[in-house]
Nucleic acid binder design. Structure first.
Ligand SMILES: [Mn+2]
Ligand SMILES: [Mn+2]
Ligand SMILES: [Zn+2]
Ligand SMILES: [Zn+2]
Lengths: 138, 138
DNA sequence: CAGTATTTGCAAATTTGTCGCAATAATCTA
DNA sequence: TAGATTATTGCGACAAATTTGCAAATACTG
């Protein structure tokens, strides 16, 4: 994991610094996080400006990417680390759950795009609704 | 169209005001717009704060919703007005093309979500790649 | 049309994101 | 491993985006 991080950084000529490791640590193995969350979780260690710069750099290096979710966007590590997946966003509690990619669905998405004379290279699917917990009868 | 707008507003107890009609007019039958664009197009008629309040209210009333295009978000009328569709984003020329919803794909998306114990209420699919024009051999 | 509740504009505040620059930390080579 | 060379950070000041309180204006009801 850290080796992949180091490799992706090196590929772009970026160095592996302490702040970058800290931000990576905040993202690894967690739900996608808002900027405010990342800034909050690192507040005593890294300056806000550095967090913004780090996330932008992570995006350019293919280490992290942003999910646009309704009002806020959230950051997560790319599929290099997490595998390709989609997201379920609970409109009640605000949590974001990963939805492992289904090969048949993936194929269909590419097919639909191709039939519209479009050459698909990637996609993002965000599903909104109620998570198991929030749809329980009260 | 205006009748639908009026109905959706009334359903929530909101009134049909001049500023709301103006914002609706800016969105109707156009490409999704950024906040900056909407604010710009209405600058001489409506205050910025009112635009923000109107868009939020439109979202709550199911009149408009935020669309996730790369870094900035854009606003478009909901499927009540536009029909349900997805988007093809050309990474070469930057254009956004509507992709009419395919019933089989829609079903599969709901199914996949349900199987993950999630109650789907809507979704957003953004496909990135090359449009017909940009994938032509040069 | 008057009465009542909602909505607007305005100005100020807050929140979010950006920038320049001197100090610091990482990398590279010997 | 030290020293030279770059890249990166923190800080503080900015700039942009969004929110808020409140008095005045507007829409809705009957
Ligand atoms: Mn994810
Ligand atoms: Mn659209
Ligand atoms: Zn939930
Ligand atoms: Zn194109």
């Amino acid at each position: 994991m850290i080796n992949t991080l180091r490799a992706l950084l090196k590929q772009k000529g970026y160095s592996l610094t302490k702040p970058r490791l800290i931000v990576f640590g905040v993202l690894a193995g967690k739900e996608p996080q808002t900027m405010a969350e990342i800034i909050g979780l690192t507040a005593n260690k890294i300056d806000r400006a550095t967090v913004y710069r780090t996330i932008e750099l992570f995006e350019q290096a293919g280490i992290a990417h942003r999910l646009n979710i309704g009002f806020k966007y959230k950051i997560e590590l790319t599929e290099v680390f997490n595998g390709h997946h989609h997201h379920l966003h609970c409109t009640a509690c605000g949590r974001t759950f990963p939805l492992p990619a289904n090969p048949m669905l993936e194929t269909m998405i590419d097919t639909v795009a191709s039939k519209a004379d479009f050459a698909p290279r990637g996609h993002q699917l965000e599903i909104y609704g109620l998570c198991q917990n929030c749809s329980k009868p009260s």
